[in-house]
Design a protein around this nucleic acid. Sequence first.
DNA 1: GTGAAAGCGCTAACAG
DNA 2: CTGTTAGCGCTTTCAC
Lengths: 356, 356
Amino acid sequence: MSVTIHQVAAEAGVSPSTVSNVLNGRSERMLPQTRERVEEAIARLGYRPNGPARQLRTGRSQALGLVVPSVANPFWGTFARHLEAAALQAGYRVLLCNSERDPARERDYLEELWADGIRGVVLCSSLPSLEHVLPLVERGLTLIAFDRTAQAGDPPSLVNISVDNAVGTELATRHLLQLGHRRLALVSGSLHSVNRRARLRGFEAALEEFGLTAADAVVWSGTADHDPAAHGYGDLDFPDLGRSAARELLATGRPPTAIVAINDMCALGIIAGARDAGLQVGTDLSVVGFDDIVLADLATPPLTTVRQPVPAMADAAFAHLRAGIERAGNGGAPGGSLLLRPELVVRSSTGPAPAP
Amino acid sequence: MSVTIHQVAAEAGVSPSTVSNVLNGRSERMLPQTRERVEEAIARLGYRPNGPARQLRTGRSQALGLVVPSVANPFWGTFARHLEAAALQAGYRVLLCNSERDPARERDYLEELWADGIRGVVLCSSLPSLEHVLPLVERGLTLIAFDRTAQAGDPPSLVNISVDNAVGTELATRHLLQLGHRRLALVSGSLHSVNRRARLRGFEAALEEFGLTAADAVVWSGTADHDPAAHGYGDLDFPDLGRSAARELLATGRPPTAIVAINDMCALGIIAGARDAGLQVGTDLSVVGFDDIVLADLATPPLTTVRQPVPAMADAAFAHLRAGIERAGNGGAPGGSLLLRPELVVRSSTGPAPAP
DNA sequence: GTGAAAGCGCTAACAG
DNA sequence: CTGTTAGCGCTTTCAC
């Protein structure tokens, strides 16, 4: 079938263990010429080590897991690409899984990845509780929680990586407030998620700074019907969420003049909804997104949004994952949250508040 | 470490091979009660078979490879999600790789996947020649080429799955012609790809039907600077390509009144470019895309586009892949191209030709 | 400095 | 019907 280490050994006139030593960088234990002969034989035969065999023997895998809500959302696609790039550079591969935000799928995937010998996973889940995957962590899985911050019930060693969501919406909301808007809305969808609640806090904090109260703003969290988490279509419902929200909010007696969206997909939906209602986004209505997906800049009007530093977050996730795997069992990993600072990118979907 | 088949056997009071038989669905060879005892033991111990060991023994892997240009393009993200869904249902996992349209990366990935025991891969590459991966196919890799049609130099067994690109642009172009447009442009980017050339053919065919010649239309294929294939940023340059094209085309003396874009990302770029130039898309200028990504409907104006039947294509890709793997060596696979019919989705980015 | 041997967890003949 | 056995390809002590 495929060429094995034995054939390489025969070709080079050495034993399999010598070949193995070459493969694993233990070349100081042999004559340079021996090493050369082996390397030639490898090249000549086009030998590549058999992954599964290696893994069976060592227990280690060269692959990492990445569980995202859905790669159909460009934000996750972009993150996946950056994580893959970081991993690749260090000789790791990334196995990608779409959870559709379903905890059962999250758990099943982690179980499978574990059974496949994968010992490190980035889980993108902003569920408040991670107890559904706790058993895996106890068995020794290195888990990085992405897009989430530490919670009281977490395993002590858990590393969380996220953008600073509260700072993000605070930046966004302040921007709107500085433009003179006084009737604001936050379109959030269900608030059963750590990061959405943080975004809500940032929104409220900014209002407070400007002396406004909860009564001056509306938080549109939708109904179960609009909640992407509820019916498991992954992230593809955010646009619908935004569109419905815009329809409802704009039909009220005193509609908001500015809307903070929970993410860019949702913001795009809001823009579509505003257009349906005959409003001009950027003048009649201001909209801010969150994420800065590729298409934010291409929207009409180009979307003002809170940029997540995706490359830096991916690098950090990989670095922690790797450290966790390579420490493996030597215990003593200090868990916690890493919150990266977002940046407000002002484009044209926001503008001065229209005269009352 | 983890629980093995031996412990399950001991727990159930049977031999490992009986457990293995249960695991592999050969339960007709044993008493129902034996099977039950084994299943209880499995559940009680929380046993999961060790993937690598299984794979080493059988040579088969429960994973498939998917190599896409870049998941940061929602089209590929969506395709990946659908393929994953189809695979999952049949008990397969999908290993996702981003090639950034670089043939060397395509080859390296396939080599690695092969070494990891993966015997079936969907390669999304529209390069005219697949010789860089031919050795793998000769070794027995089941390869499905996606987004590409058969070429003379292909291995005879190669299965190609693609939308019918020529029909797609023909549909799009006819639509524009029927709306009265007579000065058209195709923004294609580099034509070194099978599917883009097919799209060009469809464009020309429609012109011909309406009695127009090549002189009535311009094909904007950009410069190397604008070619996503050339500098390996994956698919993220398509918007730039479109934007540059719009800028240049609209600055000419007799600008086109309608543009066919090579894909939706590019169309979005064109819309942005038209906006930069102060034109109203849908009235002053009509734009048609290709793919129907999630965001096409959310664009301003909503994008008229050629929809690729992604779920059906993903199902077909998986079915062929599986057939190829399971046939494995029994030879006799009949290669060829499967072209699925696209559908024109008319939204508001196209409208009647403006009066001259 | 190099080789022989054992075995990772599992499957599939083949015996019993 | 169930158990015994012999590896899959590789790494890693431990001898030489």
